[in-house]
Amino acid sequence: MSLEVDSILKLYGSQKALNNVSFKVDKPEVVGFLGPNGAGKSTMMKILTTYLKPSNGAAKVNNLNIKSDKQKVQQSVGYLPEHNPLYLDMFVKEYLTFNANIYKVSKQRINEVIELTGLTPEVKKKIGQLSKGYRQRVGLATALLHDPEVLILDEPTTGLDPNQLVDIRNLIKSIGQTKTVFLSTHIMQEVEAMCDRVIIINKGEIVADKKLSELRDKKEQTVIVEFDYRIEDAFLKKLPNVKSVINTHGFVYEITFTTSEDMRSYVFDFAHDNQLKILQLNQKNASLESLFIELTKL
C-alpha cells in the first residue's frame, strides 16, 4: 500500500484541522485531494511527508511509519509543497544539482528531469528570473529527482499558462501509470483530466471518496451550446431526455439531459434543422463540481 492513513487527528489548540481521517491509496493511481480553503488538505500532506506530527492516529507511506521511519519516508517521497521553496539566486541546473547531491543521484538523472518537466529553454537562467509557471516546474523537477514511488503535490498546476498546463498534466498522468500521485487542486477540470479517483475533505473530515469512473457513469449530463441568435427555451425542451434549459448569458444555453448518451449530436441536428449556426458546443461534466459544492457548502 502506497499511502495508508488511519484515524489521523491534528489539533491546533482546540481547533481540529483533521478529525480522524482515514483512507488508503495503492499504486499505480492518481488521486485528487479536494476541499475548500482551510479544509485540511495541506495539513494532511505535511503529515504524510513528516513535516508535521499528527496529534493522534497513524499513517504509512510506502509501508514506512511516518513516526518511526521519518527519514526513510522523506527519502521515498517526492513532495511539491503549496509554497514552492526555491533558492532564487541559484541557476536552474545548479539548484537541481544541489538537490541531486543530497539524494545521491546521477548527473544523467538531472538531465532527464529537466527534459521531463520542459525546463530545457530556461536551464541557464537564475530561478529568480523565471516566471511563476517555470518556478513550479523547477519544484516538480526537484520532487522527481530521486525517482520516488510516491509523489505528493500540493497545487502542482498553480501559475501555469494553458500550454504549460497541458504539458504538466500529461506528465502527471504518465507518472501515474507506474507510481502513486496524490495531489491537491482547486481546479475541477484538472481533476477530470488527470485523476483516477477523488477524495473530498471538508472541515477536517473525509466527505467523499470516489473513482472518477463512478462519477462519469451518472445518468445525467449538461451540454453548453452557443447559437448565433436567441431562441425560446421551449424549443430546446423538445429535444429528447431534456431535464432543464438555462439561458446563462447572450445566446449561450446550458441544456441538462437525463441520459448517459452523448447528446451533442442531437443539439447539432436541432441547429441544422432550424437553420441555426453553432458558435460553441461542449459537454460539461458537472457531476464532480456538483458533488463538491453539495458536500462542502456551509
Results as ranks from 00 to 15, higher is better:
residue 186 H to E: 09
residue 171 L to I: 13
residue 169 R to D: 05
residue 183 L to P: 00
residue 187 I to S: 02
residue 207 V to T: 02
residue 139 G to L: 08
residue 194 M to D: 01
residue 212 L to P: 05
residue 170 N to M: 15
residue 146 H to S: 06
residue 145 L to K: 01
residue 180 T to F: 06
residue 196 D to R: 04
residue 139 G to K: 07
residue 136 Q to V: 13
residue 174 S to F: 01
residue 186 H to L: 15
residue 189 Q to L: 13
residue 164 Q to A: 06
residue 185 T to A: 13
residue 181 V to L: 11
residue 158 T to G: 12
residue 197 R to Q: 11
residue 160 L to C: 05
residue 148 P to W: 01
residue 199 I to F: 03
residue 195 C to R: 02
residue 209 D to H: 07
residue 181 V to G: 00
residue 183 L to S: 02
residue 175 I to C: 05
residue 139 G to W: 03
residue 182 F to K: 04
residue 144 L to M: 14
residue 139 G to N: 05
residue 142 T to Q: 14
residue 210 K to V: 14
residue 160 L to I: 09
residue 203 K to Y: 09
residue 208 A to G: 06
residue 160 L to G: 01
residue 150 V to Y: 03
residue 169 R to C: 10
residue 151 L to S: 04
residue 161 D to G: 06
residue 175 I to D: 04
residue 197 R to I: 15
residue 202 N to L: 12
residue 169 R to Y: 03
residue 149 E to Y: 07
residue 181 V to M: 03
residue 156 P to A: 04
residue 139 G to C: 09
residue 185 T to F: 07
residue 196 D to V: 14
residue 190 E to V: 15
residue 176 G to I: 10
residue 206 I to V: 13
residue 202 N to E: 12
residue 175 I to R: 02
residue 140 L to K: 00
residue 210 K to N: 15
residue 192 E to P: 11
residue 190 E to P: 15
residue 203 K to S: 12
residue 149 E to H: 09
residue 214 E to G: 10
residue 147 D to L: 15
residue 188 M to C: 06
residue 164 Q to K: 09
residue 151 L to P: 12
residue 187 I to M: 11
residue 158 T to F: 10
residue 183 L to M: 10
residue 192 E to L: 14
residue 168 I to P: 06
residue 157 T to Q: 08
residue 140 L to Q: 02
residue 178 T to G: 11
residue 202 N to T: 09
residue 161 D to N: 07
residue 208 A to C: 11
residue 191 V to K: 02
residue 141 A to E: 06
residue 161 D to A: 11
